[in-house]
């Protein structure tokens, strides 16, 4: 079984360390993982704006690169949500259906498929606040959401508990959206920026040193808001902690 690693465009361009951590982590866990060159984007930015015609070429390219693998793993909840639920600007061939059904977000893949619970190489002696992106929380359902009053569960927390020395803090509004929202962040920049600021302050007040998330897009936005406002928080993708990053 060969697993293809899909790296979202913003991680490829601006956060290569997240891609590297994801690849190394999967390799450490014995996964036969390949990184197909020539990757661009999954089509989400165009599709989320309703522009199916602009998304079609991007989605077709994604299917070309990834349609023949047993599974695809991505360190990004919102991209996986797009691929699974909305990859329909291209004709729904068997290949597309296979791809949509076999694309996993990293936390899901580690928790549900590989069923890993220990990361003996990992140690993170810091206080962290977990940020579940809305894509992972309410679409991929990797954690319970406060809206439903369901029995609490959290796949990312299950994984992080296997890391030595880590301590968790809980913000007052753990499920509140951070305001990134893709192109929302630039089209509605005032509201988006305020949501981001409220989010990072909430974590700061809870005593977090780091915000950890399975979505780099949320982190990129929150980091930008924190830096502008002088909120002394650091930001790290869950793959980096699980792969043994110390800081």
């Amino acid at each position: 079984m060969t697993v293809a690693l899909a790296i979202p465009c913003f991680i490829d361009a601006f956060f290569p360390e997240v891609g590297i951590a994801t690849l190394e982590l999967l390799e450490r866990l014995g996964v036969d993982v390949v990184y197909p060159q020539g990757q661009t984007c999954c089509g989400q930015p165009m599709a989320n704006n309703g522009c199916q015609s602009a998304a079609a070429g991007v989605e077709a390219h994604f299917v070309d690169l990834f349609g023949d693998f047993d599974a695809v793993v991505m360190p990004s909840g919102s991209c996986v949500h797009h691929l699974r639920e909305h990859l329909d600007a291209v004709p729904q061939t068997d290949r597309v259906r296979h791809l949509r059904a076999h694309t996993y977000e990293l936390v899901e893949y580690l928790h549900d498929v590989l069923k890993v619970s220990d990361f003996p190489w990992a140690e993170f002696p810091h206080k962290v606040g977990l940020h579940n992106s809305c894509g992972t929380l309410r679409s991929l359902r990797t954690a319970s959401m406060s809206e439903l009053g369901e029995t609490p569960f959290s796949k990312p927390m299950d994984l992080l508990r296997g890391v030595r020395g880590i301590a968790f803090v809980t913000p007052a509004r753990p499920d509140e959206c951070c305001g990134f929202g893709g192109t929302f962040s630039v089209a509605e920049d005032a509201v988006s920026g305020r949501m981001g600021l409220d989010k990072v302050r909430d974590h700061e007040q809870a005593g977090a040193e780091y915000i950890v998330s399975a979505d780099t897009s949320c982190l990129m936005h929150q980091q930008g808001c924190a830096k502008r406002a002088g909120v002394p928080l650091r930001f790290i993708h869950i793959a980096q902690i699980l792969n043994g990053a110390r800081a």
Partner: peptide, 17 residues
Amino acid sequence: RDREVPAAPQESFAAWA
């Protein structure tokens, strides 16, 4: 307007890979 842009790494993940 409301945020800093992320720092630019030396190379992309694709180049690293």
